[in-house]
Amino acid sequence: MNDTIRVYDLAHCRAGDKGNTSNVSVIAYEETDWSFLRDTLTEERVMAAYAHIAEGPVTRYEVPKLKALNFVIEKALGGGVTISLAQDIHGKGLSNVMLAIELPAGGRNQASLNT
């Protein structure tokens, strides 16, 4: 067992756009992994993963009943859909950056491993 685990292994994500702000949801497959993600997938860690794309800041919201975290990443979309020079002007694919984040797996209940 590796000592890191990807967000991809624990959760599914979707990105949405509003102006120059992207929001990326992180929805745990399992309840226990939601707690693990809440403890480890911090605003700082997410900002670091998006640092080469977005200026930030990153704000995290918790929605426990949906087993979800919602990250709001500001200044992420090249000025917004209408003026962005990017190919993916909506940043629809920005959820993939979240999925690829590696988290230290220590502290995660191995019994809840979801594959």
């Binding site: 599914h12 979707r14 949405g16 929001n23 949801s25 929805i27 929605v63 949906l66 979800a68 919602n70």
Partner: peptide, 12 residues
Amino acid sequence: CTEQLLYEMHDP
């Protein structure tokens, strides 16, 4: 439904 519910949402 959860993915769509949080789509383009900021403060829940």
